[in-house]
Design a binder for these strands. Structure first.
Length: 570
RNA sequence: GCGCCCGUAGCUCAGCGGAUUAGAGUAUUGGCCUCCGAAGCCAAGGGUCGUGGGUUCGAAUCCCGCCGGGCGCGCCA
């Protein structure tokens, strides 16, 4: 059987076609009521149709109810227990007990694969972090890493073929600034001195790079290429090459420690090297939407909803950054990604229209037929770090901001990852260090992990009791003794897991997952405190243990999507 | 000034393709370990959903104004 929700939608649709053929095309929306007294599912289709059918909603609901009850009576297996009309015309459904607990069996049978859809979906590229190699990763990058990684996992688990990608802007003036900063350090200068370049990076890491450069050390970037420092202060190209490799390596170390792995690293410099930037300019001109003004080449991005036209080629002959950005996205399209999602800070919001416009112009002249909404964006706002009631702004390491490494050292990877995805991306994030460190109070990470560990302990005891191994015996357990309201509520939540994953993936809203896990853990803790699991009656005992084992499995599956550990002991 | 986002309990936040009585955590107060892990559970109090209009049988949710906050508004990235 399909999941209960879609099955129910099918039933309602068929009843609707029978009773009100004129309204057969109506969307059937099945929701899970917050209030358990309203049943397991509810449908508002009667309210929606009242106007169209010119009949009171309760009357429509009543006709549908009759048809549904007839169908249920004729069915071979029992699915519904009751169909009730309530309020203005809601149809509330109560599932048969066997329907309710059916989800428990699927969870135990599928194990780690529960919630996973067949990998038949589109190819999608998720670009995130994309930090310039000019300094250590900061907490904002951490938020991006957590959001991007979890979103990728969500898309993947629901069948999309995901590529996680990191883009380096390694061709701009910022890299030049980095090289000059290192060079200044090599000359023995320090921030604050008169000769120190005004725009230079002041963090301690610049001195570290200079020291290693002078010592002619070798570093390996994320792609593994070793770079050895020449040690010559005056050779700026060499300084730059070493500094970039050094910082790429540092970022790689941080990302690995954070549990984030990328499939592809793209370099802005390679877009120039491969002639992709020049090709984009050529195609923009061919689209007929460019013009020369003040010695520069402009693209009429206002044709695509931008609030002003944008410069493509500056009067000095170089290109603005958005050109390689467009070239990069043309590349994504050409690699076969019909969906691309970029995770970025809201401070880059204004670039969206520009990049999409640029893609449209190129698409028009090449006939690529890139959709106007390509690529998709998940924008997140800034992270503010609080400790002891005050904002933490300065990190020794970076000089002017708190690094991801600082954060992970302070509170641990699990807490950082869980926290950073636990809010809507567009909300401003207040990261409270004291809160993430608390081991007993309002710390949702421990709350969820604790539920997992508790169940593991329970399963270990049950195994001793029954002298059986693992969950294999539980898959066959008779679940009919699970008759309590708490038990069916838990089972219902387990069966809602795949739906929740779909919603989170569709809405590009990974925070949904953390809320689900907290609610599931909460429901388990309540159940655990109210009822004894390991009871003498072995049928009841096995059924309850099977339910708990299913809860554990879903907690573990969900945590793994978040990249958070599911400990057996804490 | 213009554009986008946000304003929900003391605090931190869900809910916002309208729909049955607005939720969670925390903080406060009071209970629960001779019993499967108290990093837990139960209960109470706490909200004109920023504000004023509008659409609707029905609005925290959709539309408009205003107030307050964030981000952006370069031939920077």
């Amino acid at each position: 059987m399909t999941d209960p929700k879609s099955h129910l939608a099918g039933l309602v649709r068929s009843a609707l076609e029978h009773v009100f053929p004129d309204a057969a095309g109506t969307d059937i929306l099945i929701e899970r009521p917050r209030d358990a007294t309203h049943g397991d599912f509810a449908c508002t289709v009667a309210l929606q149709l009242a106007k169209q059918l010119k009949r009171p909603p309760r009357q429509i609901a009543e006709s549908l109810r009759t048809a549904l009850v007839d169908r249920e009576a004729a069915a071979t297996t029992r699915f519904l227990d009751a169909v009730e009309i309530a309020g203005a015309g809601f149809i509330n459904f109560r599932l048969a007990p066997e329907t309710r607990v059916a989800g428990v069996r699927s969870v135990l049978q599928l194990g780690d694969a529960y919630g996973r859809a067949a990998a038949e979906g589109d190819k999608v590229v998720v670009e995130f972090v994309s930090a310039n190699p000019t300094g250590p990763l900061h907490v904002g990058h951490g938020r991006q890493a957590a959001l991007g990684d979890t979103l990728s996992a969500l898309l993947e688990v629901r069948g999309r073929r995901v590529t996680r990608e990191f883009y380096y802007n390694d061709a701009g003036v910022q890299i030049q600034t980095l090289a000059l900063s290192v060079q200044a350090r090599l000359r023995g200068l320090q921030p604050g001195e008169v000769a120190w370049p005004e725009s230079a990076y002041n963090g301690d890491y610049v001195r570290d790079i200079a020291d290693d450069y002078a010592a002619r050390k070798t570093v390996a970037a994320a792609d593994g290429t070793p770079v050895t420092a020449g040690g010559d202060t005056e050779n700026l190209d060499d300084v730059r090459r070493f500094a970039v490799a050094y910082l790429r390596h540092e970022q790689d170390v941080d990302l690995r420690a954070f549990g984030t792995a990328f499939d592809v690293f793209s370099l802005e410099s390679s877009l120039y090297a491969e002639g992709r930037v020049a090709a984009v300019v050529k195609n923009m001109i061919a689209s007929g939407r460019t013009y020369e003004k003040d010695g520069a080449l402009w693209l009429r991005t206002t044709d695509y909803g931008d609030d002003k036209d944008r410069v493509v080629r500056k009067s000095d002959g170089s290109y603005t950054y958005f050109v390689p950005d467009v070239a990069y996205h043309i590349g994504k399209w050409e690699r076969g990604f019909r969906h691309a999602i970029n995770v970025q800070g809201t401070d880059h919001h204004s670039t969206i229209t520009r990049v999409r416009g640029g893609l449209q112009a190129v698409s028009e002249s090449t006939g690529a037929e890139i959709p106007t909404g390509y690529p998709d964006y998940v924008l997140h706002s800034m992270v503010k770090v609080m400790r002891g009631g005050e904002e933490v702004k300065i990190s020794k390491r970076a000089g002017s901001y708190v690094t991801l490494r600082d954060l992970v050292e302070w509170v641990g990877r699990d807490a950082v990852r869980f926290f950073l995805v636990s809010r809507r991306a567009d909300s401003e994030f207040l990261f409270d260090i004291d809160l993430a460190l608390s081991k007993s109070e309002e710390n949702p990470v421990y709350y969820v992990q604790y539920a997992h560990a508790r169940i593991c302990s329970l399963l270990a005891q049950w195994t001793l009791l029954r002298q059986q191994s693992g969950t294999s015996a539980l898959r066959a357990a008779d679940l009919s003794p699970l008759a309590l309201a708490r038990e069916s509520a838990l089972a219902q939540r387990l069966s809602a897991y795949p739906e929740m994953l779909d919603d989170a993936a569709r809405e590009l809203a990974p925070h949904t997952l953390t809320f689900f896990l907290r609610d599931l853990a909460s429901e388990f803790h309540s159940y655990y405190n109210a009822e004894r699991i390991l009871v003498d009656d072995s049928r009841l005992c096995d059924a309850r243990v099977a339910l708990c084992a299913a809860v554990r499995q879903v907690l573990a599956n969900g945590l793994s999507l978040l990249g958070v550990s599911a400990p057996e002991k804490m």
